[in-house]
Design a protein around this nucleic acid. Structure first.
Length: 271
DNA sequence: AAAAGCCCCTGGATGC
DNA sequence: TGCATCCAGGGGCTTT
């Protein structure tokens, strides 16, 4: 489910409210992708200093240590003053002096992992190979082009891989490529510098706009207040197979790339 | 080093 | 109504 915009919208919706809280109890439901690699009891009494994001990971800074939270395909977080009614898919619950953080994740591809610090081996294994932050100052068009230049795979799959640029998932990859006028099947290394620069800009635009819109709610995404996002309404290609392109009227096509659906306009997007 | 497949898991939509 | 099949916003791991 959640790509960078959804993760960032989630972060923005509870970071300020949880900062400074002290952990009172930790409750676990069914196992997630990885087991929590520390004794839940050992977190009790620690303060939550803030919430950062790296790619699609949320970093809950504790004093000391940090929790890495990933929402997987179907995860969502809520942060509420009162204990929520127990749900069968609530698999991680952090009770604090300022509210209850709850991870709801039907498919359980999500995870919560503890690390003493970011240099820790566990943290580095998960965060170490991540690419540039698309909304950060370090996301440079020339570096982006250089990163693409050594990849022969289709550009869509290079975007999804996350080692050149992070946070672009299945929805926003299709959307950004549409905005940049680039066919998803084009080999990444074949993109000229100007076209790579155009894609660089398109990624920033699409992701920033999606954050403003509160993310995409296709099935069940909601922020930590429980509110849905609205970006999906303005998708140009994603999920629009057979419908007319909003720019030229050509029917939108759907193909499979690496077991994932890709949508594009064969007229607006050139190989 | 890079690319391609394979899984993990549940639920909703669709088709017979 | 019941059952089988396919699909879904991710990504680490193993194999080529």
């Amino acid at each position: 489910m959640p790509e960078l915009p959804e993760v960032e919208v989630t972060r923005l919706s509870f970071a300020g409210r949880i900062a400074g809280a002290r952990i009172q109890a930790v409750h676990l439901g069914k196992p997630l992708r990885w087991p929590l690699n520390c004794a839940p009891q050992s977190l009790v009494g620690r303060q939550v200093r803030g919430v950062r994001r790296r790619g699609k990971y949320l970093l809950l800074d504790l004093d000391p240590g940090l929790l890495l939270i990933h929402l997987g395909m179907s995860g969502s977080l809520t942060f509420a003053p009162q204990l929520p009614a127990p749900g069968v898919h609530d698999h991680f619950e952090l009770r604090t002096t300022q509210g209850v953080l709850c991870l709801h994740d039907p498919r359980r591809f999500g995870a919560v992992v503890y690390a003493p610090d970011e240099q820790d081996a566990t943290a580095r294994k998960l965060l170490g190979k991540l690419g540039m932050e698309p909304l950060g100052a370090g996301f440079d068009a020339a570096l982006f082009h250089a990163g693409l230049a050594r990849r022969r795979a289709p550009i869509k799959q290079v975007l999804l891989a996350g080692d050149v640029v992070v946070g672009v998932g299945n929805i926003y990859a299709s959307e950004a490529l549409f905005l940049a006028g680039i066919r998803p099947t084009t080999q990444a290394c074949k993109l000229s510098r100007p076209r790579a620069a155009r894609l660089h800009q398109a990624i920033r635009e699409v992701l920033a706009r999606a954050v403003e819109q509160g993310g995409s709610t296709l099935r069940d995404f909601s922020n930590a207040h429980g509110e849905a996002g609205h970006f999906q309404a303005q998708a140009m290609v994603y999920g629009r197979q057979g419908q007319a392109c909003k720019v030229c009227g050509t029917p939108i096509r759907a193909i499979r790339q690496g077991q994932r659906s890709t949508y594009f306009c064969s007229h607006c997007q050139k190989p």
